[in-house]
């Protein structure tokens, strides 16, 4: 009995220790601070599409390699709580395009690590040399070489495999970052915000469409692409 109780406690402790806390990010003060917003029954929702520069500034993980990052914020009305599930948010590249499901942090981290491992690092080392020599006699040939200035220029090139952020440790860090900054799942009565990652490369589409279903209410947001 005691042994099984201890095993249960140990399992629970291990589970809690291993679970990554999904915090999200600080919500912007108002829904109108976002690119687009909508008011639905008990809550308001706002969303913004991050530009490449924003992604580079906000994330250590290189999400510009095939992902669109959307910041989503939910603002429940006073005293009301709303159930939020990032799995119910879909992206469309056009109004009638096929819906794209949000990618999980683990999947993205694995994909980025694999891509980074295939990168090549090329380092270039230019060099310059200046010399001066006086007249020299070469006893081997019996000739005298005149002195004077000599110059040389060279370039060394080093090529290495395996780019940055390609180790298993990096994958864990990327997964942690994406999870911590991701839109949390659960029931909220205060404003909550976070990023949702969609596997779609940058395209020439001028705007994106976000279909959100929260508490059975479906809403559509249009986000200008930056």
């Amino acid at each position: 009995m005691k042994a099984s109780l201890a095993a249960i406690i140990l399992t629970l402790l291990t589970t809690f220790a291993c679970a990554v806390d999904q915090k999200g990010i600080a919500a912007r003060p108002k829904p109108t601070d976002h690119q687009d917003q909508a008011a639905v029954a008990d809550f308001q929702i706002g969303a913004s599409c991050l530009s490449r520069v924003d992604v580079q500034r906000e994330f250590a993980s290189d999400l510009n390699r095939g992902y669109v990052v959307i910041e989503v914020a939910l603002y429940p009305e006073n005293g009301k709580s709303v159930e939020l599930d990032p799995g119910q948010i879909f992206l469309r590249l056009t109004e009638d395009g096929k819906p794209i499901r949000a990618a999980e942090a683990r999947t993205i981290a694995r994909s980025l690590q694999k891509a980074n491992a295939g990168d090549r690092d090329v380092a270039v080392y230019p060099s310059i040399g200046i010399g001066y020599g006086t007249e020299r006699y070469d006893p081997n040939t019996g000739r005298t070489h005149p002195g004077g200035w000599t110059t040389d220029v060279g370039v060394g090139v080093g090529v290495g495999n395996g780019g940055a952020a390609s180790t298993d440790e990096d994958r864990k860090v990327m997964e942690l970052e994406l999870t911590e900054k991701g839109l949390p799942k659960g029931k909220f009565s205060t404003p909550v915000s976070g990023y949702v990652y969609f596997p779609a490369p940058r395209s020439s589409a001028s705007s994106l469409v976000l279909d959100v279903t929260i508490a059975g209410q479906q809403t559509r947001l249009t986000l200008p692409r930056r």
Binding site: R65, G66, Y67, R92, L93, T94, G97, K98, I100, R101, A102, A103, E104, T107, I108, S111, L112, K114, A115, G118, D119, R120, D121, V122, A123, V124, Y125, P126, S127, I128, G129, I130, G131, Y132, G133, T134, R136, T150, G156, G158, G163, A164, P199, A200
Partner: peptide, 28 residues
């Protein structure tokens, strides 16, 4: 449009960087 997370394969990059330079002088 119909890509799912499992099918995303970011391409590999080649990173070119300046490693440094050296300058030398010689007198004989």
């Amino acid at each position: 449009v119909d890509r799912q997370p499992a099918t995303v394969k970011p391409e590999s990059h080649t990173r070119l960087r300046f490693g440094g330079f050296s300058a030398g002088g010689h007198y004989s």
